[in-house]
Design a binder for these strands. Sequence first.
DNA 1: AGCACGCCGACT
DNA 2: GTCGGCGTGCTC
Length: 829
Amino acid sequence: MNRYADVLLPLAFKQTLTYALPPALQGRVRVGSRVLVQLGPRKYYSAIVCRLHDVPPPPEVRVKDVSGLVDEESLLLPGQLRLWEWMAQYYMCASGEVMKAALPSGLKLESEMRLLRGQPPQDDAALTPREEAVLAALSEDEARSVADVQGRVGGGSVLPVVRRLVEAGLATVEERVVRQYRPRTVTHVRLAAPFRSEAALNALFPALHRAPKQETLLLRYLEMSHAAAAFALDHDGLLEEVPKADLLYGAEGGEAAFAALRKRGVLETYPFETERIKQATAQPRELEHPLTDEQERALREIDEVFATKDCCLLHGVTSSGKTEVYTQLIRREIEERGRQALYLLPEIALTTQIMQRLGRVFGGQMGVYHSKFPDAERVELWRRQLTERAFPLVLGVRSALFLPFRKLGLIIVDEEHETSYKQADPAPRYNARDTALVLARLTGAKVLLGTATPALETYRNARQGKYGLVEMFRRFGDRRLPEIVVENVKELRRKKLMPTPFAPRLLREMRDALVHREQVILFQNRRGYAPVLECRDCGWTPHCTRCDVPLTFHRKQNKLVCHYCGNLYDVPFACPQCGCTELRDLGYGTEKVEAAVRAAFPEARIGRLDLDTTRSRSSYDAIIGDFARGATDILIGTQMVTKGLDFERVRVVGILCADQLLNQPDFRAHERAFQLMAQVAGRAGRRGRRGLVVLQTRQPELPVVGQVVRNDYAALYRTQLAEREVFGFPPFVRLIGISLKHRDEHVCAAAAESFAALLRPHFRPDDLLGPDRPSVGRVQLQYIRRLLLKVRPALPVQGVRRTLQAAGAALQAVPAYKRVTLTFDVDPL
DNA sequence: AGCACGCCGACT
DNA sequence: GTCGGCGTGCTC
C-alpha cells in the first residue's frame, strides 16, 4: 500500500511536493485524484496526485498528511497527466502552471483566511486606535474575509494588526476552503417515504375525496413519475424525477394543493442537481448539403492520408466549404467508429456562427467549451466528459485540449494559422495546434488542420510529406474570388486626391454598393480614434507613464488610452512642453474611420467591431447579428472582421492601410499580412455580383501585395520560404524567445547582457540575437530586454533547454539579478 | 503565487 | 521608541 503521494499544486513550483497518506486514505487515492493539502502554516489547496509511492522523503522535510480526498473519482483520465508533463517540458514551465491552465477555476480550490472576534478584551488592555478599529470590524459569529475587514477599516494593510490581535487572543482566524462551484439545483418533488407503496396510496385516496385539487395533483404526480410501473416492480428507485415546476405547470390552485399535500406528509421536496451546460437542443438533423465533387474528393483524399499519416492539412480557398468536409469527418468518427471528436477554433468571439452550424447537425451530441462561458458550465462539461454520457463532439477554444476524452479519434484545428492558438501570457505559452498533435499521438487520434492560408511551417510540413496535403480550389457554387484593386495612397495623397481615409475608387464603390443595398466591410487594424496626438508647435506627444508607448486618443470617452496596460489618462488641455493648446490627432483608428464614414455617407447605417465595442460577448453577437441581417450597411473593424464570418451581401471590402501590417518589425509580417488580407478579401462577394476589394497601400510594389491580388499562396510560400532560409528563421530553425524584465532599466540591461554571455559559448554567434530593447521597451513599469535563440535542427532540443535552464539558474544566483524575471517562450509567434 | 520574516525610514 | 513600508525566501 502506498504511503506517500506526490502532488501538483496550481503554483509555479518546479517540482511536486510529497504528502503522507493517512491510513484511511490509502488505497482510495489514485493518480489523477484531487486531494486537499495544507501548504505553509495555514493555506489549503486542492492538488492533483501525480505519483503514489513508498519512498520516504529526505529527513529534513517535515512531511504533512494529505488532509482529505476532494472527489471519490479521479478528475483526470489516464494519460492526461502525460500531456501536462509534455507541455511543461516542451514549453519550459512548471507543471503547476500547466495545471493552472488546464483546470477550469471551479475545480481549483483554495482556502481563504477568515477572521472572527476572539475573547473580549480586558479592561486594562491597551489597544491602539487601529487595533480598536479592526476589532470593531470583526463579528462574533460571522467569519469575515480579510478583504472585507480591510474594506471596513480602510487605510494600510490590516494583516499585521490582525496578527497582533490573534496573538493576544482577541481575534481568531479560520481557513475555509471556498467551494467556488455549486451545482445548480432545481426543486423536485417525490412521495414521502411512508407513501411509497401502492397500499399506502390506496389507503390515502378516500381521505382526499373531499379535496379534489389535491387528488388531481397527486394523480398527476403519480402519472408523471410513472409510479404504477415502479410499484409493480416494487422498486421505488424507478420513480421518475419530477420537477416541482413541471408538476404545477398550468395547474390552477396547484400551489395551495401542493402545500396541503406536503402538510399531510404525502409529498416532499428536495434539491436536484441539474446541468447548466448549454447544448444545442437536439433537433431533427438538418440535411446537410450534398457534398460537391470537390468536397467528395477532398474527403476521399483525407481518408487516404489518414491510412498512413496522423495529420493532414486541408488547404481550401475561402468559401470552398471546408466546414461540410469537417462535418462529414466528425459524423463518421462518431457514428461509424464510435469515437469522439474535438473541434478546435481560435480564441475569437465568433464561436456563435460555427456553434449554430454544427449544432444544427449534431444537436445534443455536441458540448461547447468556451472561455467566455460561465465557469460552472465548463466544470460541468469537464465532469460530464469523464462519464459514459460524454459528448461525442466538443467544440472549443485552445484550453479544450485539456478536457478528458475517453476515446478521442479526431481533432480538427480550424483556421490553423491563427495566432490566437498560441497562448502569450502567462505560462504555459503553448500553441494549441502543436499541442493537438501531441494529444493525438497520446490518444491515437488523427488531426486535420484546416485553413485557406496555412502557416508557413504547416505548409512546409505538408509539402515535405510529414503531413498529408489535401487542397480545394473551388469556391462554393463556383463563385469567383473577388477582384482586388490596389490604390497607391502615396500617389493619391501627393496629388491631394485623398482628403479622407478612402481612395476615390473606394468611395465610388461604397456609394455604388449602398445604392444597390449591398454591404461594405472596412478593415482598419487599429482601434481608438487616433493612434497619436501631437502638439502643433513643438511636436510633443503624450506617452504612457508605465509603458514606453504613445497613447491612443479615444474620442467617445474623451480619454487617452494605453493599449498595452489599459491605463486611462485625461486629454491634456495644453502641451506641457510649450503650452500650445492645439493638439492634432494623427493617423486613423476605427473610431475616426467611423466618423469619416458618417461624414461621407450620412444616411448609411454603420457598425463598428473592435475591442472597445465588444467588451461583452453579447455586444459582439449583436453587432455581427445586425450586419448579418442587413440592419447595418457598413461594418468597420479591426482583425475581428477578418475571422471567417459568413456574410452573404458583402460586395465591397476596403483595406484602409495595408502598411501597418506590412511594416511590422517581424519576420512574419508579410505572411501575416497575406493571411489577414486574403481572409478579409474572402468576405466579399459570397452572393450576387462579384466582390471587390480595394487595397490601400503606400507600397504597391511589394511582392506580397501582388500575391494578395492574385490570391497566390504558392508564390507567397516560395518567396517567404526563400527569405527565411537565407536569414535562418522558421521553419528552418526553431525559435526560443527569452525576455528579461526589471523595474530598473540598467539592471535589466546588464542582466540581459550577462545572460547572453552565459549562453554564447553554447551557440553559434549568429544564432543568438540580442539583447535588444523591444519597440515597446517598458510595459507596466517593467523594463524589458529580449533575446532570440535560433535552434538549428541538428541540435538536440533537450540539451538546449538544459543549457537555458542552467544559464537561468546562474543568472539568478547573482544577487543583483535575483529579482529579474526571466521568461522563455518556445516557438514564439 | 501567497505569506511570514526581517530590515529600515517616518512619525508620536 | 513604534508603526508600517517593502524586499527575500520558503512552501512537502
